[in-house]
Computed example of a mutant assay.
Amino acid sequence: MLNDPHTRHAPFLTVDGLSKRYRQDQPPVFEHVGFRIERGEFVCVIGHSGCGKSTILNIIAGLDAPSEGVATINGREITGPGLDRGVVFQNHSLLPWLTVEQNVAFAVRSKYPSWPRRRVSEHVARFLEMVGLAGAARRKPHELSGGMKQRVGIARAFSIEPQMLLMDEPFGALDALTRGVVQDELLKICAQTHQTVLMITHDVDEAILLADKIMLLSNGPRARLAEIVVNTLPRERARETMHHDPQFYRIRNHLVDFLVRRSKLVQAAGGAGEGPETEPAVVRPGLESRSLDEDGPRDAPIRIVA
C-alpha cells in the first residue's frame, strides 16, 4: 500500500495486496497490487491488455472477488456491489425500451425508493442538464448517437450520487471528436461535484487531461503496479491549451516510454521491486529540469518514493 507521510487521515479507498488467479495451474493475472485513493482524486489506470486493469476495477465495484488481498472504501471491506459506487462501462448498457429520463430515473429510484415521482423527475432533470441532454429526455436509446448514449450512462452513474465513480474505458468506442465533447462534460461535472474517480484508459492524452494521478501496470501475467505518475499540470487544464505546457510532453513521453519499453522490463524483473511488499515509485516526470530542446538522451524522471 502506498504510504504518503503528508496524509495523516485514513485514505478513502485502500487496495492492499490484491492478486487474481483464475486457475491454480496458471500464474496470477496480477499480484501484490496495492494503492490508495484520496477523496476527490481522479485516478487513471494504464497498462497493456491482459494486465488485469478491468479485473481490479470489477473487484472495487464488487462484481468480482480477489484471490488474495483486500479492498476497502471508507474503512469498510468491499464484498459486493453497492450504491456507494457508480460504474460506467465501455458499453453504455442502457435499457432500450426506456427513454433517457426513464433510464436515469430507474437508477435514482434504486437509491431513493421513498422519493415521490416529482422529486425523482427533478433530480433526473438536474443530471441530464449536467451532461447537456435536457433536450433529449424523451428519446429512446436508438434515437441517440454513441456519444449521447455514453453521456446518459454518465448521468445515470452520477445521479445516484455515489461516493466513487468507476469507469472502464468509457470513451473507447467513440470517435475522436465525440470523445472530446464527453471528456469535457466529465471534467465539468467532476469540478462541480468533487467526485472521486477511478478510470481505465488506453489513451495517454486522455489520462493527462483528466487525471490527478496515473497508475501504470506492468505486463501480465503477474502484473504489478509499477509506478504512480503525478500529473503536475495545473488541475484547471483544457484540451486546447495543455499541450503548450512543456510539462505535458515530459509526462506524455514518460507514459509512452513505459508502455513501449519499460513495462516489459518491470515484468521481467518480477514486478515493481524484489518482494511483494515493495511499494510503487511515485514519479513526477513533468518536473524534469532538462530542456526539451537539448540534444542527447533525456535525464531520468525525478522519482519521489513516498
Rank of each mutant, 00 (worst) to 15 (best):
E77Y: 04
T79Q: 10
G80Y: 13
G80F: 12
D84W: 06
D84T: 06
R85S: 02
F89L: 00
F89A: 00
F89R: 02
N91K: 09
N91M: 05
H92K: 13
H92I: 09
H92P: 15
W97S: 13
W97H: 14
W97M: 07
T99M: 14
V100N: 11
E101W: 09
N103Q: 12
V104I: 09
A107K: 09
A107P: 08
A107R: 09
A107G: 08
V108S: 02
R109F: 02
S110R: 10
S110M: 11
K111H: 11
K111S: 05
Y112S: 03
Y112K: 13
Y112N: 11
Y112Q: 10
Y112R: 14
Y112L: 14
P113Y: 10
W115Y: 14
W115L: 10
P116S: 01
R119K: 15
V120N: 13
E122H: 05
L128A: 01
E129Y: 04
V131E: 03
G132H: 12
L133M: 02
A134V: 00
A134D: 12
A134N: 12
G135T: 08
A137T: 15
R139F: 08
R139I: 01
P141V: 08
P141F: 04
E143N: 09
E143T: 04
L144D: 03
L144A: 08
L144S: 03
G146M: 10
G147C: 01
K149V: 00
R151M: 00
R156I: 06
A157T: 04
S159W: 03
I160E: 09
E161H: 10
E161S: 15
E161T: 15
P162D: 05
M164K: 05
M164N: 04
M164D: 06
L165K: 07
M167L: 03
M167C: 00
G172R: 13
L174R: 11
L174P: 02
L174F: 13
L174H: 11
D175P: 00
D175H: 06
D175M: 09
A176E: 14
T178D: 06
R179H: 03
G180H: 08
D184N: 10
D184L: 03
L186R: 05
K188N: 15
K188I: 11
C190K: 06
C190Y: 07
C190D: 06
A191D: 15
A191N: 15
T193E: 10
H194R: 12
Q195E: 13
V197N: 04
L198W: 01
I200E: 11
I200W: 03
H202G: 02
D203Y: 12
V204A: 00
I208R: 08
A211G: 14
D212H: 14
M215G: 01
